[in-house]
């Protein structure tokens, strides 16, 4: 078991997660319409504003908010989110989300990092219920706190390219409102001092996928019998989640940084079985929470 901990970076998972940034980049290309594809009739399951001049798909959170303002049930957007969540949970956040990639890149700047307290991560649910559903329902999309009006992804992916285009064409630049500028500035600044601040504290899409972590078909599973309590998994996690304690924590984005030792591993639900070692020791083989 000790040798397992020593070979922390030599398991298949570690080799796979080494290419995470490249895979995020490939997904980014897909979201940016490499063939000029603009399928804005369908949502992609990632946080990417449809106001971006290159956006291939519609943003699911934007559609939830807009449809809430219109008092119409968005079956298509909800269906896409539920299917994605049921299959992979928050893998999307760690491997496919373009806004997540941006935050990951900003976090590489060597500056001191602050870990937000656990209670602050519940703000995501408040943002989902308050700004995406309740506020648009009662006050419509013209309210200054309507989600799209304060969304930093919309500002960075939609407003900034538009302003650059306007400035380049010699036209008057249409600035976003002060609230949007303030939120965007705060999130961009926080990206350098907090790992994935948007995902941890405010992302409503991450809140949805996080809820699916407990039931998703593909998940991280913890095998207690293989664990030597070295604590490396917890130290590797950007969100302070230890996979050996809470493999299905809603905050987990399944970046797979913590599964290198073999005590935790990525599995489909049908693959989970009590380990032979655990059976020998007479302990529970798989712990899922």
């Amino acid at each position: 078991m000790v040798s397992m901990a020593e070979s922390f970076f030599h398991t298949p998972a570690s080799k796979f997660s080494r290419y995470r940034t490249a895979i995020q980049g490939l997904f980014l290309v897909a979201w940016l319409g490499p063939l000029g594809l603009r399928v804005h009739t369908v949502c992609a399951p990632v946080f990417h504003c449809y106001a971006c001049p290159l956006a291939s798909f519609a943003c699911p959170i934007g559609i939830l908010a807009q449809f809430s303002a219109l008092h119409v049930m968005p079956f298509l957007a909800i269906g896409i989110l539920v299917v994605t969540g049921a299959l992979v949970g928050s893998f999307v956040c760690g491997w496919a989300c373009p806004f997540g990639l941006l935050q990951d890149l900003a976090a590489r700047v060597p500056l001191p990092k602050w870990d937000p307290p656990y209670w602050l991560t519940h703000m995501r649910y408040a943002a989902l219920v308050g700004l995406v559903i309740i506020l648009p329902w009662f006050f419509g999309e013209s309210h200054p706190l309507f989600f799209c009006r304060v969304c930093p992804a919309g500002a960075l992916e939609g407003s900034v390219p538009m302003m650059v285009t306007q400035a380049a064409a010699g036209q008057a630049v249409a600035w976003p409102n002060a609230m949007k500028l303030g939120v965007t500035g705060a999130v961009v600044l926080a990206m350098f001092f907090v790992r994935r601040p948007w995902c941890q504290i405010l992302c409503p899409l991450g809140a949805i996928f996080g809820l699916f972590n407990r039931i998703s078909l593909f998940a991280i599973r913890f095998y207690p019998a293989r664990c030597v309590d070295c604590g490396k998994c917890g130290a590797k996690c950007d969100f302070g989640v230890s996979s050996r304690i809470r493999a299905d924590d809603p905050r987990c984005i399944r970046c797979m940084e913590c599964v290198h030792c073999g005590a935790c591993q990525i599995e489909a639900a049908w693959q989970a079985k009590p380990s032979a070692l655990a059976a020998d020791l007479g302990v529970e083989g798989v712990r899922e929470r």
């Binding site: 079956f75 269906g79 989110l81 539920v82 299917v83 049921a86 049908w270 989970a272 899922e288």
Partner: peptide, 16 residues
Amino acid sequence: RMACASLAAIAGLGLT
């Protein structure tokens, strides 16, 4: 987990 995920996936597919 498999039962919950399958039910959710089928429901999501139906909604889609």
